[in-house]
Structures are given as C-alpha cells and as structure tokens.
Design a protein around this nucleic acid. Sequence first.
DNA 1: CCCTGATTCGC
DNA 2: GCGAATCAGG
Length: 150
Amino acid sequence: MEWTEERIEALRALWMQGLTASQIAERLGGVSRNAVIGKAHRLGLSARPSPIKREPGAKPVPMPRPARVAPPQHHAEPAPMPAAPPAPQPQLSAKAPGAAPAGGGKGCMWPIGDPKQAGFHFCGAPSEAGRPYCTQHCAAAYHKRQVDAA
DNA sequence: CCCTGATTCGC
DNA sequence: GCGAATCAGG
C-alpha cells in the first residue's frame, strides 16, 4: 500500500479522533496496525488525548476521556458511523474537496480515505450547524484544500 | 489470551 | 520511509 495524502490525512484525523491503531488500519485497509503506528510516529503524532501511559515513574495524570461524541442528542439514531457506507460518492477525491453534504447531513461529511477503497467513510463527527464538516479536523482540512487548489 | 501503543531493525 | 517483529503494558 502507498501512503497517499488522502490516507495520511485520514490517519491523522482518525488517530487524533482517538481511534485505535487497529481501527485505523481496518478503515484504511491494506495496512496492519503496526504500519499505522509506525507511520503515526513518523508523522510526529504519538501524543494524543488518550489514556496511554508514558514513562514508568511519570505522573499518572487522569485524562478526562476526550470522547468523539459531544452533543447529547436525544434523537432516535445514535449515528453509528458505518465502516463502509454502501453509497460512495461518484467523484469527490483529488481536486474535488467539495464533497456535497447531501441528504441527511447530520455529522461531518468530510471524506476519509479513498472513495475507491473499501474502508472509505465519512468523518461522522458532530459538525457545526450549517457546516458540513466538523471543526476538529475536517473543517481545517477542507479549508486547506481550498487554499491548495487555489 | 485478548487487546493497546512503543520501539527496534532489516529492508 | 516502511512495517513485521518484538517489547511492555492493561
């Protein structure tokens, strides 16, 4: 497998969202969890808000679970965020960041992974009203792409 | 034994 | 740079 911008971005996003290396590897597809961890380290990310320990004699600082789900919506659907949505967008990769947040734009619609890949999915994180992307990572990435494309 | 991330090291 | 093997821990 090749570490394309897309995949690296997805890795970053997922990693920062608190997903485990196994989950990330699963979603990305074609890589083992070791590969994900190794890449994550090479990318300079290993520190993330999560309950992982460092240094034997360090402080066992209690981390208040960042959690990926913030708003306590009392809707019926808990928004499960499927691993492989059966309805992939036609063309929205490469130079087409404007992934139209069509339909039930509930969560973040930022495309994570390669639409051609099996593990492709949308971020799904809670997004601001009127905004198709979550503020955590995707909105920034979205903006960055627009700048890059320009 | 299942899992986690961290590190090493041959490629 | 990559990732399997390994390490250290829960």
